[in-house]
Simulated assay, not measured.
Amino acid sequence: MPAILKEFGPDIWIADGPIVTAGGGFHYPTRMVVIRLVDGSLFLWSPTQVSDGLRTEIDILGNVRYLIPPNSLHHVFLGDWQRTYPSAKAYAPPGLIQKRGDIRFDGNLDDTAQKDWAGEIDLVVMPGNLITTEVVFFHQKSRTVLFTDLIQHFKPDWFRGWRALIARLDLMVGPEPSVPRKFRVAFTNRRAARTSVQHILDWPAEKVLMAHGDPINENGQAFIARAFLWLTRD
């Protein structure tokens, strides 16, 4: 049986999960990221569906210490992971504590939480979006930036019928991953968003991972600059 976890760089792995259905019947692929910290513990970003095979591979890598939902939309499987690893800490992005009262959160995703993995993973909060407030991460060792929904990319034939038309109009389908139009117009505070993007562009990024789209394997910093040109050129 092929491995579920795929190495993406030094101490970072990805696992593609099941397809989930969102509002309007749009189907989305899912992806999680596993990062091994210097002390051997594991940081699980956007955990997807739990399976015996995935658990076995993760347990071989180390002890799960952090469960990280990166925005208020990526939380469906979080409770299952917390029951599987009850000693792991869960940190909440803005808006999720109110949404998931059944989850035990150990804190918020902010500068205080970052002290737990200081020097290894950096984070930036993208504020002022009416859809969700996303937290963007940077794994220093692999020089990888982690986006969740702010950057997406689907194959031209992924959606059918009227959904395919909506996807094209929303910029979900194109020559390379981009920020969907609905997220662009949902930013109510573009000045704050630009400040966050400038922080992200200061990272020496080589690679970019996203929950919905193929990874960017080189020239990540230049790619991010192109993806947010609509915002930074204002």
Score class of each variant (00 low, 15 high):
5 L>Y: 08
8 F>N: 08
9 G>A: 02
11 D>E: 14
12 I>M: 09
16 D>H: 15
16 D>C: 12
17 G>V: 10
17 G>W: 02
18 P>E: 09
19 I>K: 10
20 V>P: 07
24 G>M: 10
25 G>E: 12
26 F>I: 13
29 P>N: 14
30 T>P: 00
31 R>V: 14
32 M>I: 03
33 V>M: 04
34 V>W: 09
40 G>P: 06
40 G>T: 01
41 S>K: 13
42 L>T: 03
42 L>S: 01
43 F>S: 06
45 W>L: 03
46 S>Q: 14
49 Q>A: 14
50 V>G: 06
51 S>Y: 05
52 D>V: 10
53 G>P: 08
54 L>S: 10
59 D>M: 12
61 L>M: 04
62 G>C: 06
62 G>D: 00
65 R>G: 02
65 R>W: 03
65 R>M: 11
68 I>F: 01
70 P>R: 09
76 V>I: 15
79 G>S: 14
79 G>M: 14
80 D>Y: 13
81 W>T: 01
83 R>S: 14
84 T>V: 06
85 Y>V: 08
87 S>R: 15
89 K>V: 05
89 K>T: 02
90 A>I: 13
92 A>K: 02
92 A>G: 07
93 P>C: 11
93 P>V: 10
95 G>M: 08
95 G>V: 00
95 G>Y: 07
96 L>T: 01
97 I>R: 06
99 K>D: 04
99 K>T: 08
99 K>G: 04
100 R>V: 04
103 I>C: 07
103 I>N: 01
106 D>I: 05
106 D>E: 12
106 D>C: 09
109 L>V: 14
110 D>S: 09
111 D>P: 03
111 D>N: 07
112 T>H: 12
116 D>P: 02
117 W>N: 05
118 A>C: 11
118 A>R: 15
118 A>V: 11
124 V>Q: 11
125 V>L: 09
127 P>I: 11
130 L>K: 10
131 I>R: 11
132 T>N: 13
135 V>K: 01
138 F>L: 05
139 H>Y: 05
139 H>M: 06
141 K>H: 02
142 S>I: 03
142 S>W: 02
143 R>Q: 15
144 T>K: 03
145 V>P: 02
151 I>S: 08
151 I>D: 00
153 H>Y: 11
154 F>H: 12
159 F>W: 11
159 F>R: 06
160 R>P: 00
162 W>Y: 12
162 W>M: 12
168 R>N: 11
169 L>K: 06
170 D>R: 05
170 D>L: 07
174 G>Y: 13
178 S>P: 00
178 S>C: 05
181 R>A: 13
181 R>N: 07
181 R>V: 12
183 F>P: 00
184 R>Q: 14
190 R>K: 13
192 A>G: 07
193 A>W: 01
194 R>H: 09
196 S>V: 00
199 H>I: 09
201 L>G: 09
202 D>R: 11
202 D>W: 02
203 W>F: 08
207 K>I: 00
207 K>N: 05
208 V>C: 05
209 L>A: 02
210 M>I: 04
210 M>S: 01
211 A>W: 07
218 E>D: 07
219 N>F: 00
223 F>I: 05
223 F>L: 03
226 R>C: 07
226 R>Y: 09
230 W>R: 00
234 D>P: 06
